[in-house]
Design a protein around this nucleic acid. Structure first.
Lengths: 228, 228
DNA sequence: TCCTTATGTAATCAGTGATTACATAAGGAG
DNA sequence: CTCCTTATGTAATCACTGATTACATAAGGA
């Protein structure tokens, strides 16, 4: 029923002062916005120790509350991870949108490539967060409407760009746009996931993995273009 | 130092007879081959309840030994999962080799497609096992030389086939074979992983996901062939 | 002012991976 | 055959985890 107005500064707990201050100073029983605090704690936990090390209790500890407190805001650990994933997905989406905005004057295929580079770039720059938004083990895609919708939005953007490309004669014509979208998603997802899962160590050890991915993307896109 | 000969039937424990038989009948203190028993228990556990539900203790329980016993044979849970993964990888490899044997008389690209179909077919038929051999969360690829080597063998086979295809003029010539191998691996891995991770629900809900993947593979391969 | 509701805590449960000290069986050396 | 080392098992325990319950307090409207 309506958003809860943040109880502006009802007193954060973490104002130093360890081991019980002489003057009790009630110090606010309620946290203010534990939801954000816990999500933030979880994110820092992920960045420091990886997705496997995430624990509800440690997140609670970092937020300075009891281990049962998070359950007031998330029914279970999966729900917390979903919240983290949604936030990560937001950043990925923003990154893609920025790339598309920067290339708004270019041809569809160039913009499609920009989208791909933004996606791969984000995944390689934020491997653990990419892990969160992708592995089912951490968060059930189907259980989070928001995540599903954000995913779908990207897919639709890809479809739009490729349809434009087809109309402008940039795209090969012997494969349906839907098929190409699926193929391209698999390619990008696969490349990112292979990196995250440690399946790309033998490839040009000297070269940075991100650059490897980018040039693989370029080659892949070449196969989609209409022959000159 | 040398393989341990199986102590042939030194007395399995699971010969019914619950709750302590009247005549003690030592019944063999040593299990015989706990390693296999535990790996097998883990596999059945994975099949019944998924990769997330795997627990060393439950596997021990199913093998009829104490919860500390597995640690005599595996330094930790990851090592057990690695053993399971190696076995799964063996089956995947066998499936691919069978497909290649069946198509030994065909042209390189046709055999390359057979390899792809075998890979995707196996992944779609054994999603949880595919999960085990791929996600780093379950087993560290780099820590298991056997797994790495099996993976590398597939990669080499792909390279060989594509080089043959190039020599016979079946393959497009504007992209290096190594690049194509990487791209193809990403495509296949991505498709399989998307399925396993639940990222392929919206695509032709009527069609079976496996068929969807197969036709996506066919389209993808079309982009690799030299233009007629 | 009172009283409902949201939000926190402490205590507890069942389950996990891992380690330790101890017990027993196997199987070769003498 | 006997002894004794070593491989392999067990019970007990530790430090954790996710989750639930009963209880306490704060917020804020009627």
């Amino acid at each position: 029923m309506g958003e809860k107005k943040t109880v502006a500064e009802t007193g954060r707990r973490n104002d130093g002062d360890p081991a019980g201050s002489p003057r009790p100073r009630p110090r606010a029983y309620h946290h203010g916005n534990l939801v954000d605090a816990i999500v933030q704690a979880t994110i820092s936990l992920i960045e420091e120790r990886g997705t496997e090390a995430v624990s509800l209790r440690e997140a609670a500890r970092r937020a300075g509350v009891s281990s049962a407190a998070p359950f007031r805001h998330f029914p279970n650990k999966a729900a917390l991870m979903a919240a983290v994933a949604e936030q990560a997905m937001e950043r990925l989406t923003a990154s893609i949108e920025a790339a598309l905005a920067e290339t708004s004057s270019l041809a569809p295929m160039a913009r499609f490539e920009a989208l791909g580079r933004a996606y791969l770039g984000w995944a390689f720059d934020n491997p653990t967060h990419f892990q969160v938004i992708s592995s089912r083990a951490l968060v059930d895609l189907q259980a989070s409407p928001r995540l599903r919708q954000q995913n779908e939005a990207i897919r639709l953007t890809m479809t739009d760009l490729l349809e434009s490309a087809r109309r402008s004669g940039e795209l090969r014509t012997d494969i349906s746009v839907d098929q190409i979208v699926l193929s391209a998603r698999a390619f990008g997802y696969g490349l990112a996931r292979m990196h995250v899962d440690g399946h790309l160590p033998e490839w040009h050890p000297s070269e940075a993995p991100k650059e490897t991915a980018m040039s693989a993307l370029a080659s892949y896109l070449r196969t989609l273009r209409r022959e000159a």
